[in-house]
Design a binder for these strands. Structure first.
Lengths: 200, 200
DNA sequence: ATCCTGCTAGACCGATTGGTATATTTCGAC
DNA sequence: GTCGAAATATACCAATCGGTCTAGCAGGAT
């Protein structure tokens, strides 16, 4: 059972973007890796590379969002959820020979035109992800202002740890960071005024 | 007074790498922006683009290291130093129209060959930077293990915040993160066993 | 003056870039 | 079976990629 051409294009493009970013994705190589003819790319994505990458980014961001949301609501405390999320990322890094990474970060660092669709998508992605952590922290009783800035640090650390682990080809830092963030978040929750915790 | 060609090449290349990474730096554009003839590039950097970028990265990493070290030793507490560092980055982001960034992160996310010189440089850079924060925290009395993981989170947050701010074209998150990290670090220092603080 | 060295200048190269054009195949509706 | 749309397959394109090559300039040493 072979997936259809469009799907193959999107999935290979997602891998390539994570690994190399916008400028590093060569259309010819994409076609080879996804075993798709040139004609099919421009049939499914008439506007070419940019449209393909925008689609890939949209889907990638959504997948991350779903995954974060699932783990945040499945775990008892935000600290534990965050640790689980980072530990899962550590495993994904190892399983992918350190090609796994954020769907957005490589694009942000590729100097795309500020107004472009892809650039807009990356901005929205971070707003959404920080928002998820924020909500989880607030629900656990952390005061609004602290929840906001702590959520930002969690997301930023996650993104930064992905880079550091890639640079070292070692998922160790991600696991260390997972524990540290869990501790920080647990402390913030513990310091929260009693009786303010909302049920999820 | 015009700087010499080699200097112009390195400085323009540094800007371009920060903004667009390895694949996004086009030699022809670099030559135009630095107003240098093609021959000069290959005279000063016989191995071409890779050698140029390796040089640029080495110098960029060193500059960051010096800057971090200076601020860490100039400020009274590590928390305050970290806040200052991030606030300076926030200003740099705004002053550069959000082209300012890490000299290494774009390269890590450009899928370079694992054994290449450039890849090695990025790994060493993170080891060095995390080490600086680690030393500062340890000197302030934070126990070794905690100092290590906290230093890692500080560096990762910094790198992540640079990305988030670029994505939003807004240095706000960097300033918010600066305050949050200061709080986290101050708390860790305050919790340190008394009498263990070393003088810098 | 001449020679050498450090550097500049730019023509030129094959390979690859993203994209277009058109012919052909596939496949469901009827 | 026949028709038409959906999709595939490739040949082709100008532009740009990073890199090579050689000719010449500038300026100090002798």
């Amino acid at each position: 059972m072979v997936k259809d051409t469009r799907t193959r294009l999107v999935e290979t493009a997602a891998d390539l973007v994570q690994d190399r970013g916008y400028h590093g994705l060569a259309v010819a190589e994409l076609l080879t890796l996804s075993d798709a003819p040139r004609g099919s790319l421009y049939f499914h994505f008439p506007e070419g590379k940019d449209q393909l990458i925008a689609t890939v980014t949209r889907e990638g961001v959504e997948a991350v969002t779903d995954s974060l949301r699932a783990t945040l609501s499945a775990e008892k405390t935000p600290g534990r959820a965050i640790r689980k999320i980072l530990e899962a990322a550590a495993s994904a890094l190892e399983a992918s020979d350190f090609r796994f990474g954020s769907p957005t970060a490589p694009l942000v660092l590729d100097g795309l035109q500020a107004g472009s669709e892809i650039a807009a998508l990356t901005g929205e992605a971070y707003t959404g992800w920080v928002g998820l952590f924020d909500t989880a922290l607030t629900s656990a009783g952390v005061p609004a202002k602290r929840a906001q800035s702590l959520a930002l640090i969690v997301e930023a650390s996650f993104e930064g740890l992905l880079i550091i682990c890639r640079a070292h080809r070692d998922a160790g830092p991600m696991r260390v960071g997972a524990r540290e963030l869990e501790g920080i978040v647990d402390a913030a929750v513990a310091a929260a005024p009693r009786g303010r915790r909302k049920t999820s």
